[in-house]
Nucleic acid binder design. Structure first.
Length: 349
DNA sequence: AACTCGGGGTA
DNA sequence: TACCCAGAGTT
């Protein structure tokens, strides 16, 4: 049996029922694909439901404020996806009359849509035979064909894309693309794939050479940087605090946080107190300082570890500007901040 | 080609 | 710990 046929047969017997498999509407397929970039189905599923409910069409999404889109995206990570999602919705409505491009080349022009996502939408919605190559496809192909080219190299990207393109079922590219990803996600898993019951185990090169655990090959990443984050949680006599929008480059763009003092090493109570006395928001005011978390909180991102302290600064005077403590949950914040807000008892002030 | 961008899950 | 996830954009 051919690779194509075996795969198709496996898929018809093993595919999961997922909400975005009930439609070929490019809006819903696009939405699901953006959510699922570098995100497991289990994690993305509830977000897909929230977005479909809140924004049932591209017109609804285009009309929204970016802050509301980010709030709904809160916790999912890679927030540029949310910003690009919103920008693309506006573009599709304003420039394309609400109609998504109906081919790979046109889709590729959309912000946040790269080779993978353009291929996924083109095949699923428009029956175009453009092969998807995601993490699942790299794993399946590298094992089945015994290819040890690093998947995160430009050579590897080209090689695997070409191979997938040769294999794709041109009569039913939508099913082929989804099947190979589903197979990688639930059967040909990164760890402990159940090769004993795999329909490909007779011809799989990795299995027959006992190299399943060595493939795919991936060049190792650089080591993570350490950063020391000190958040200034101000609480005024009129129950307000300060939240700032993160602007410019870097993580968490356009999300909110407490005023941040970043240092190159751990900050002691005394050092922070001296610092606070000269801080624009506090100086010349009577304040009381306490450290919320006695143990430093380590928040781990892909390329950084954030060693975090939340400093509670209560001041006797009222604050004119700022956010009422009762409204603090309306802002889109990173998980690090969100966890603090959920655990800190603001209502006691 | 190298870097950056999150957060959750698994072994 | 280390690695992975229905990758994309920037430099």
């Amino acid at each position: 049996m051919t690779f194509r046929k075996t795969l198709k047969h496996w898929y018809s017997n093993n595919k999961r029922e997922l909400p975005w498999r009930q439609t070929k509407d490019p809006y819903f397929i696009w939405l699901s694909e953006i959510i699922l970039q570098q995100t497991q189905v289990k994690q993305g599923l509830p977000y897909y439901g929230k977005f479909v409910d809140e924004f049932p069409s591209v017109f609804h999404l285009a009309k929204a404020e970016e802050s509301d889109v980010l709030k709904l995206w809160q916790g999912l990570g890679y927030y540029s996806r949310a910003r690009n999602l919103h920008a693309t919705a506006k573009y599709v409505v304003d420039e394309l009359n609400g109609e998504f491009p109906n081919n790979y080349k046109g889709l590729l022009k959309l912000k946040g849509v790269g080779d993978y996502t353009a291929s996924a939408i083109a095949s699923i919605c428009f029956n175009q035979a453009s092969a998807v190559v995601d993490g699942n496809v790299y794993r399946v192909l590298s094992r089945y064909f015994g290819i040890d080219t690093p998947i995160n190299s430009s050579k590897g990207a080209k090689e695997f894309k070409q191979l997938a393109q040769e294999l794709i079922d041109t009569q039913d590219p939508a099913t082929f693309n989804q099947a190979i990803m589903e197979f990688g996600a639930t059967q040909c898993k990164p760890q402990n794939p159940d090769c004993a019951i795999c329909p490909f185990n007779i011809s799989c090169i990795a299995f027959n050479n006992n190299k399943v655990n060595e493939l795919p090959v991936k060049l190792k990443a650089l080591k993570v940087k350490k950063k020391y984050f000190n958040f200034l949680v101000l609480i005024s006599s009129n129950q307000k605090t300060i939240l700032e929008k993160r602007e410019g480059q870097g993580i968490w763009q356009n999300l909110y946080q407490f005023p941040l003092i970043e240092t190159d090493k751990n900050m002691s109570f005394e050092t922070f107190k001296q610092f606070a006395e000269t801080h624009d928001l506090i100086k010349n005011k009577t304040f009381d300082l306490s450290l919320y978390n006695q143990e430093v909180i380590v928040h781990k991102l892909s390329h950084q570890h954030l060693y975090t302290k939340f400093w509670i600064v209560t001041i006797d005077s009222p604050l004119k500007v700022g956010v009422p403590l009762s409204e603090i949950r309306e802002f889109a914040v990173p998980v690090l901040i969100g966890n603090f807000i959920e655990s800190f008892n603001f209502s006691s002030f």
